[in-house]
Simulated assay, not measured.
Amino acid sequence: MDKDYVMRIAGTIREQLVSMTDTAILMSWGIHEFMATVYKDLPGLKFCVNGRLFQGYVLICLNGSDYYEVYLQNEEGTSCISDEVCFDELGEIIDSHIESGTDKEEYARFCEQLISFH
């Protein structure tokens, strides 16, 4: 796959993720190591996270249907969390798997405990 194409796709994914996701949410993921990647012959963006629910890599790949496929990868393996994600859904889907979970009240209590602890 053409390196310039992969780099452009990775840059677009990063720009969409950062512009469509609240900064506080992005910060809660402990993101580092953004890199362009190819996974399953799909161009994408890979980055390391240190979330409350998941620690490892997030891979966001553009598929042939103009949707994103989102994978979580760590020492236990790689799992697809969704294979039809629109650009404006990336932050919410990733956050629910690596940081906040699906129980918003439980996560709010967790955050309150963290604030009162500090």
Rank of each mutant, 00 (worst) to 15 (best):
Arg52Glu: 07
Cys80Gln: 13
Gly44Ala: 06
Glu112Ser: 11
Phe34Gly: 03
Gly64Gln: 15
Val58Ile: 10
Gly11Asp: 01
Leu59Tyr: 14
Asp95Gly: 06
Ser100Cys: 10
Arg14Trp: 12
Asn74Trp: 07
Leu42Asp: 04
Phe117Ser: 12
Leu62Gln: 04
Glu99Trp: 05
Glu76Val: 15
Lys104Tyr: 08
Ala108Gly: 14
Lys46Cys: 12
Phe54Lys: 02
Asp103Tyr: 06
Lys3Gly: 15
Asp83Gly: 09
Asp4Leu: 15
Ser79Ala: 06
Ile115Phe: 12
Arg14Asp: 10
Ala36Ile: 02
Ser82Pro: 04
Met27Ser: 10
Ile94Thr: 06
Thr78Lys: 08
Leu114Lys: 10
Gly101Asn: 03
Thr37Met: 07
Thr12Cys: 06
Met1Pro: 09
Lys40Met: 12
Asn50Glu: 12
Phe54Ser: 01
Met1Ile: 06
Gly56Val: 00
Gly11Ile: 01
Tyr39Ile: 04
Ala10Gln: 02
His97Pro: 07
Glu75Asn: 10
Met27Cys: 07
His97Trp: 06
Tyr71Gln: 06
Glu106Met: 14
Leu62Cys: 02
Glu106Leu: 10
Asp41Phe: 08
Cys61Trp: 03
Thr21Pro: 01
Lys40Asn: 12
Asp66Lys: 06
Ser79Lys: 10
Arg109Leu: 10
Phe54Asp: 00
Arg52Asn: 05
Thr12Asp: 09
Phe34Tyr: 01
Leu114Ala: 15
Cys111Glu: 10
Val6Phe: 01
Glu89Arg: 13
Glu112Gly: 11
Lys3Glu: 08
Tyr57Cys: 07
Cys48Glu: 12
Thr12Ile: 14
Asp88Asn: 05
Gln113Glu: 13
Phe87His: 15
Cys48Pro: 09
Gly51Lys: 01
Gln16Ile: 11
Ile9Met: 00
Val70Lys: 00
Phe34Cys: 05
Thr12His: 07
Asp88Tyr: 10
Leu45Gly: 04
Ile31Gly: 03
Leu53Lys: 05
Gly64Trp: 08
Leu26Gln: 01
Met27Ala: 13
Asp88Val: 12
Met27His: 11
Arg52Met: 10
Ile115Ala: 08
Glu33Gln: 13
Gly51Glu: 00
Leu45Met: 09
Gly101Met: 01
Cys80Ile: 11
Asp41Lys: 09
Trp29Leu: 03
Glu112Ile: 05
Phe117Gln: 11
Glu75Lys: 11
Glu92Tyr: 11
Leu72Cys: 03
Ala108Lys: 05
Ala10Cys: 02
Asp83Asn: 13
Asp4Tyr: 11
Thr78Tyr: 15
Ala108Pro: 00
Tyr71Asp: 02
Ser28Ala: 06
Lys46Asp: 04
Val70Trp: 02
Ser28Lys: 15
Ile98Trp: 00
Ile93Thr: 09
Tyr68Pro: 02
Cys61Met: 09
Ala24Leu: 14
